[in-house]
């Protein structure tokens, strides 16, 4: 009776299936881990040993977690310059299987109060394209779109923020970014940002406050978003007045049902 139930579900005994599934899950996790590891190394990080704090050879296997079937693994990285300076700052990257997802999260390892950067990678979506890419099968209807998407997520949400955090902590020069763009390019980009966002950008730092205070820029925004002709003056003020009015109107329309009776009362009073 017991025998039959096992065989009937599948030709392979249940425990073998479970073992195989666990092994495959582990393989998926390792594949994603290896991919993330490559991105992180590409950003200039070096892997270090958790206990000794010394650099680990790139040929060293990635799994140094205690249990081979653990659903969570972690790796530690630092920057070569920090090792040279004799510093001990590093970042910790954790990989955790949660159902179909692998949660990749990282933060400074010696500062638990620092912000956590993480990304969820869908195994169903990314494992197969990665395997295809590894096997060099290009013509399988996939143009590597998923792999690009995944790499971009890991770069922008984990690797770059961690690099910025670690550079700040270690007192190193920050990686190149928006602020390193020449002035004319910043201007070109700001021209394409909507007025409301431009005002927020002005609150970030003094250089951008200066760049965002250009009257010509606000004249352009005013023309784009309100189309109204205006003779001159402070276009930022004008923009602010119009946006406030617009928001008030929107708010009023949203709540108009609630205030219908108030409105009619108001009308009566006015009449």
């Amino acid at each position: 009776m017991v025998d039959r139930s096992v065989v009937s579900t599948n030709s392979k005994p249940f425990f073998v299936r479970r073992l195989l599934k666990e092994a495959l899950d582990l393989n998926d996790l390792k594949l994603l881990m290896l991919t993330v590891h490559r991105v992180v190394v590409e950003y200039g990080f070096v892997r270090i040993d958790k206990d000794s704090g010394t650099a680990v050879s790139c040929f060293h296997p990635l799994d140094d977690s205690p249990s081979p079937f653990s659903s969570m693994m972690s790796l530690r990285y630092t920057l070569p310059q920090i090792l040279v300076d004799g510093g001990s700052h590093s970042v910790n990257l954790k990989f955790q299987t949660l159902g179909h997802f692998v949660n990749v999260c990282g933060r400074l390892s010696d500062d638990t109060g620092s912000s956590l950067h993480h990304v969820f990678l869908d195994k169903r979506k990314y494992v197969r394209p990665l395997e295809l890419m590894l096997a060099n099968c290009e013509s399988k209807g996939s143009d590597g779109k998923e792999v690009f998407e995944m790499l971009k997520m890991v770069k922008d949400r984990v690797a770059l923020p961690l690099l910025i955090d670690l550079c700040e902590k270690g007192g190193l020069d920050l990686p190149p970014c928006f602020m390193k763009l020449p002035m004319e390019l910043k201007g070109l980009i700001l021209e394409r940002v909507p007025g409301v966002d431009l005002a927020k950008v002005a609150c970030t730092c003094s250089e951008l406050r200066f760049l965002c205070s250009d009257n010509e820029l606000w004249k352009k925004k005013h023309l784009e978003e309100f189309e109204g002709e205006s003779k001159g003056g402070d276009f930022k003020d004008l923009f602010a007045t119009k946006i406030k009015r617009k928001k008030q109107l929107e708010w009023f329309q949203q709540h108009s049902l609630r205030f219908k009776h108030v409105l009619s009362d108001y009308k009566i009073v006015r009449l």
């Binding site: 970014c177 928006f178 602020m179 980009i189 394409r192 940002v193 966002d197 609150c203 730092c205």
Partner: peptide
């Protein structure tokens, strides 16, 4: 590319813009 970068700034908080563009708050 300028439009693509401008899109990244849209509808974000001041803190987000600072963090993502690595802007140091000097106020």
């Amino acid at each position: 590319t300028a439009s693509a970068i401008a899109n990244l700034i849209q509808n974000k908080s001041v803190e987000f813009v600072r963090h993502f563009f690595n802007i140091i708050n000097d106020f």
